[in-house]
Design a protein around this nucleic acid. Structure first.
Length: 314
DNA sequence: AACCATGATTACGC
DNA sequence: GCGTAATCATGGTT
């Protein structure tokens, strides 16, 4: 008697409540959650356990950053921090899952128990479970979000080289400057030259490229400021070249920087005082000052298409 | 602390 | 992919 009555009442409840609750019945895919999942997976936080996970994370980080393969010390530090995040994430996740299961079973038992004294349909229980799961998954999403944030912060801390900037050694800067000022009319080192510079200066090729990029732009922006430096290096290379030519009349093959063929640029440097020349001094560096090196492939005027100097005999 | 120098990154163009 | 220009973030200096 009672079961039959209850089932009827349940049916009525279903019908009245249907319109209200049907809306939240199906759950949307939630693109943000997917995004978070993907990121955590890519970061190696959510992936397979240990070892492979961390390695994958580091490789992903390095590949995306395009960093140099060295600096493994920082990476190991990064790795430990990342695995810390991983463990926290996993324990939290597990905790939530467990809590969710416990709560769900608890509620289910409760409802089942209550179904003896009041009309509770199985569907209602099901729906309740769904609600609980949704609530917990919302919490999980939050956990994922904060984990993602933590990883991002970690990455920006450790992998962003700007934060770990060290000035190059004196010799390195010297070598770079030497090349720059001795090729002032066309300060674009070839791949080979970059390689040589990198090797001799103890830095990477991309660092050489960065350096030249920065140097060109900063030089061009404020030639006056670099006048003194230019003179010093021009003098230096000139002296080096003369010494070398006295010593042995061969083309230098060591760093490729030697030789004084500053054609239009270095001839008057010796007479320019370090301080006053700033304003009117853009003169003596000729081509590159007004032309600003612009296009390397189409020389504006009488320059022959073959590179810049007489020295590069390779 | 303010300031400049400097290496690295980003956005964009070719 | 390499270049410029702008920008960021840190290292040194004052």
């Amino acid at each position: 008697m009672k079961p039959a009555l209850f089932s009827v009442l349940c049916e009525i409840k279903e019908k009245t409540g249907l319109s209200m609750r049907n809306a939240q019945e199906e759950e949307p895919p939630d693109p943000q959650l997917i995004r978070l999942d993907n990121m955590l997976l890519a970061e190696g936080v959510a992936g397979p356990e240990k070892g492979g996970g961390a390695a994958a994370a580091v490789s992903a980080a390095t590949s995306s950053g395009g960093m140099s393969p060295d600096s493994s010390l920082e990476h190991s530090d990064y790795k430990t921090k990342l695995s810390q995040i991983r463990t926290i994430y996993h324990t939290e996740l597990e905790k939530y899952e467990q809590a969710c299961n416990e709560f769900t079973t608890h509620v289910m038992n409760l409802l089942r128990e209550q179904s003896r004294t009041r009309p509770v349909s199985p569907r209602e229980i099901e729906r309740m479970v769904g609600i609980i799961h949704r609530k917990f998954s919302a919490i999980q999403t939050q956990l994922k979000q904060s984990t993602c944030e933590a990883v991002m912060i970690l990455r920006s801390r450790f992998l962003d080289a700007r934060r770990k900037r060290r000035n190059f050694s004196k010799q390195a800067t010297e070598g770079l400057n030497e090349y720059f000022y001795s090729h002032l009319s066309n300060p674009y080192p070839s791949e080979e030259a970059k390689e040589e510079l990198a090797k001799s200066c103890g830095i990477t090729i991309s660092q050489v490229s960065n350096w030249f990029g920065n140097k060109r732009i900063r030089y061009k922006k404020n030639i006056g400021k670099f006048q003194e430096e230019a003179n010093i290096y021009a003098m230096k290379t000139a002296i080096g070249a003369t010494q070398q030519s006295e010593d042995s009349p061969h083309t230098p093959n060591s760093t490729g920087s030697g030789s004084f063929s500053l054609s239009g640029s270095a001839d008057l440097f010796l007479g320019v005082p370090p301080m006053n020349g700033a304003e009117q001094s853009a003169y003596h560096l000729g081509a590159q000052t007004n032309g600003t090196w612009q296009d390397q492939n189409t020389p504006p005027s009488a320059t022959p298409p073959i590179s810049d100097h007489s020295d590069n005999s390779d």
